[in-house]
Write a protein that binds this DNA or RNA. Structure first.
Lengths: 342, 342
DNA sequence: CTGAAAGCGCTAACAT
DNA sequence: ATGTTAGCGCTTTCAG
């Protein structure tokens, strides 16, 4: 087990030439004679040579690494985004460092610092549930690292964002419920300082209004958007004098919580209560009844973010154009919302 | 937007001292006077200094980075493992690079190379479905990078492995089915060259034998262990002269495929056909009927692998002790296997 | 077409 | 307690 790694210098000594020549030969520099190139390459293979990225990066000033920061890697939406990013990066020979914040603000700050220290060439991020202040991202940008936000973005600073049209997603979801005959529609909402949840709430309200239904503030319930939150909020709603006949949840997980609680209570879905979730997690087609949801094109969003990053990278000048790209989400109709009218 | 990053040298010039002093002060070296330490630290903050990990790593010969290679990041099992690894690494200020191979052999090889080039201090890996040859891992180990395999390991080379007792998992799963009254139990199997699938198959066979049931080779069906594979295998099984009355699947996904196909065919689960899956994916509790499965302690496995890595790291001598740590999986009984006897 | 030399930013002997 | 010096491995002018 020979610990010491083969270096360019080792190859040079062995071949009676210099490190510069070896370096060039390894990178197919046309200035090097075909013969020399072949000698170098074959010896490199023989000696199990691997370029030392660290050294090369130090010299070049870039790391060929993209940092990706997401709240959770096991959500279908985010894991699809990550796959999209990976596929684009892989082709460009870029590394992806995936950081999972678990919606923990301190971890998010720490990860940004680490990525900066690691000389990440760019950061693609979806900010955490409790992130109100994005100074940590700003300071990375000040150091010249492009930051591209996807899905959960902050409107506070000018940046490059790629988002879903959450207003529209909510609007079509709620319109669908209304068309199916539901009238008193509750909403599970997330924190208002996050664009995605604010927009979903507004889309929900607008859809009601456009269909002549006066929004009832009591029907908007903020919770943690997890299964447990959905459960307890549903319990609360059922205790109201006039309970709702449908729930539009800003998250599939809290929608699932609602579904489970309602089943336990013997309340029929969709007959007595309609449900629509958000994100089109894989499990939504497996529940009984299956959950109507909104698909957010995670994979495409990931691809797009990565492409945007590479475009920014390739730019000669450093000034970037703050902008927001908006994708249109898609309603996936399943059983949990379908039967009231039939 | 001042592109150039503040370096230790910048700080030194500003403070009329030397880079070494600044370097030491930043790392709380006790040799440095309290006063100097404070001056350095505050100026560093003021000038938004961030250590350049790349440079520091080059100098130190280590990257404080662990590479994690998994087939899929969106499987609950793997994402739990990753969370376990992350939590341990985070405390040790180590970075985690997550690589997703999608069970693609070429990608796996490429990622190992990349990790070596990036000077990863260690590699924690679960090998791909089609990986029969692990030369790429061996060559990393030859370069002194500890490789720890979890879950899907290779018996071909002496290494550190942490696995579930898949034999036992299968054994308890099948014994459970037998106890519930099922007699003719089919098995969805994965490739025999992967330990996990080989062991599950053997556990299945042993459980049958121990209960006086002669295994029928026709009931062992190899498929891709995805939903589609489970569907088509089930279709096949149903066409047999004497179809099985239960299925033990080596994967929750193909178990799900079976469940969906059976439901479409109007076959009652668990009355006419029992099903047990493997891995305890989240969705298994959501299907109707819910799926009995085997939990593999993903999070703990991740923590354990990371801890093993750090132990190996800290060792003075380089010779590592090849060994295998085996965790015992747990049967999670749900509806899909419960009712035959009742 | 190849070589010599300098330097990316940081750290650790070895001084003093 | 601080400074001097050298070098991690690679790339890139600049010279031949």
């Amino acid at each position: 087990m020979n610990k010491r790694r083969t270096t360019i210098k080792d190859l040079a000594v062995e071949l009676n030439t210099t490190p510069s020549t070896v370096s060039r030969a390894l990178r197919q520099d046309p200035a090097i004679s075909k013969e020399m190139r072949e000698r170098v390459q074959s010896l490199a293979k023989l000696m199990n040579y691997r370029v030392n990225r660290i050294a090369s990066n130090l010299r070049n000033g870039k790391s060929k690494t993209i940092g990706v920061i997401v709240p959770h890697i096991n959500r279908d939406f985010f894991s699809n985004v990550i796959s999209g990013i990976e596929d684009v990066s892989y082709d460009k020979k870029y590394n992806v460092i995936i950081c999972q914040t678990h919606d923990d603000y301190a971890k998010e700050v720490q990860y940004v610092k680490t990525l900066v220290s690691s000389n990440a060439d760019g950061i693609l991020a979806s900010i955490g549930l409790r992130t109100k202040n994005i100074e940590h991202f700003n300071s990375a940008m000040k150091l010249g690292i492009p930051v591209i936000f996807f899905d959960r973005v902050s409107k506070k600073s000018p940046s490059i964002n790629i988002v879903n049209d959450d207003f529209k997603g909510a609007y079509i979801a709620v319109s669908h419920l209304i068309e199916m005959g539901y009238r008193r529609i509750a909403h599970f909402a997330g924190p208002d300082y996050l664009n995605v949840y604010r927009d979903r709430k507004n889309g929900y309200i607008k859809a009601l209004e456009d269909h002549g239904i006066t929004p009832d503030p009591e029907l908007v319930v903020y919770n943690d958007l997890k299964v447990s939150g959905g459960r307890s909020s549903t319990q609360m709603l059922l205790k109201m004098a006039t309970p709702p006949d449908a729930i539009f949840s800003a998250s599939d997980y809290s929608a699932l919580g609602a579904l489970l609680h309602l089943k336990e209570q013997g309340i029929k879905i969709p007959k007595e209560m309609g449900i629509v979730g958000y994100s089109n997690e894989k499990f939504t087609e497996l529940t009984a009844p299956s959950l109507t949801s909104i698909d957010q094109h995670g994979y495409e969003m990931g691809q797009y973010s990565a492409k945007l990053f590479f475009e920014e990278m390739d730019k000669k000048n450093n000034d970037f154009l703050p902008r927001t790209i908006t994708l249109t989400p898609k309603l996936i109709i399943r059983e949990s919302s379908s039967l009231k009218n039939t």
